[in-house]
Computed example of a mutant assay.
Amino acid sequence: MARVVWHVPVTTNATGSTTTLRLFRTRDGRRCAVGFSSPEALAALLGPEHAYAELGEPALRTLTAPLGVDTLVLDPRLVAPPVPTPVAAPATAPAPAPAPATELQHR
């Protein structure tokens, strides 16, 4: 049986000494771990410079279980809330220039 490897997004600190598994959220807000079937699939969604680690599904589940993450997503697609279409503001006359500042007089 062939070993299935997931390409899992990670972040690495500036010195390169610490690598952290990157978690995401499902559309309903629950945390999840993601994996990609190939480095190309990961690069297509997250960019070519994004770091990743190669893990099997059991290893990924073992890493995420203590964090309360039980959802794994393979080859996710970018899902974002819909962006509202801007409504053109009606043409209006420019606002009048502010009146010159006046000084208060003490009495």
Rank of each mutant, 00 (worst) to 15 (best):
E54Y: 04
G29F: 10
P39W: 07
V87S: 03
L23I: 09
G16Y: 05
A33C: 09
H106R: 01
P96F: 15
A91D: 14
R31M: 08
A95L: 15
R107Y: 13
D75G: 03
E40Y: 01
P84V: 02
A65I: 04
A80D: 14
M1G: 15
V83A: 11
T18M: 09
E49H: 10
P94I: 13
H7I: 11
G56Q: 14
P94N: 13
P100D: 07
T71L: 12
F36I: 06
L78V: 13
A51Q: 05
V87W: 00
A93V: 14
D28K: 07
T11L: 13
T102M: 09
S37Y: 03
S17E: 10
T102H: 09
E40L: 09
Y52Q: 03
L104H: 12
A99L: 09
F36Q: 00
A91W: 12
G56K: 11
A89S: 15
E40H: 07
A80P: 12
A2I: 08
R25P: 00
L74I: 09
V79G: 15
T92P: 07
L46F: 03
T19W: 02
P82H: 10
A80L: 15
S17Y: 04
P90K: 02
A33L: 00
V4H: 11
T92D: 11
D28W: 10
P82S: 05
L45E: 02
P9T: 08
T64W: 08
A80N: 13
L55Q: 06
N13P: 07
A43G: 06
L46T: 00
G56D: 10
R107E: 09
T15R: 13
T20G: 00
G56A: 13
T26Q: 14
N13A: 08
Y52D: 02
P100K: 05
L63M: 15
C32H: 04
A41Q: 06
L78I: 08
T92E: 14
T12K: 03
D75T: 01
P66W: 03
V79T: 12
T62K: 11
C32G: 09
L63T: 09
V34M: 12
V8S: 07
A89W: 08
L72H: 05
V5S: 02
G29Q: 11
T19N: 04
P100F: 04
P66C: 04
A53F: 09
A91F: 13
A97N: 07
G16T: 07
L72V: 12
A97F: 10
G29A: 14
H50W: 10
E54R: 10
P98C: 03
W6E: 02
G35S: 12
E49W: 11
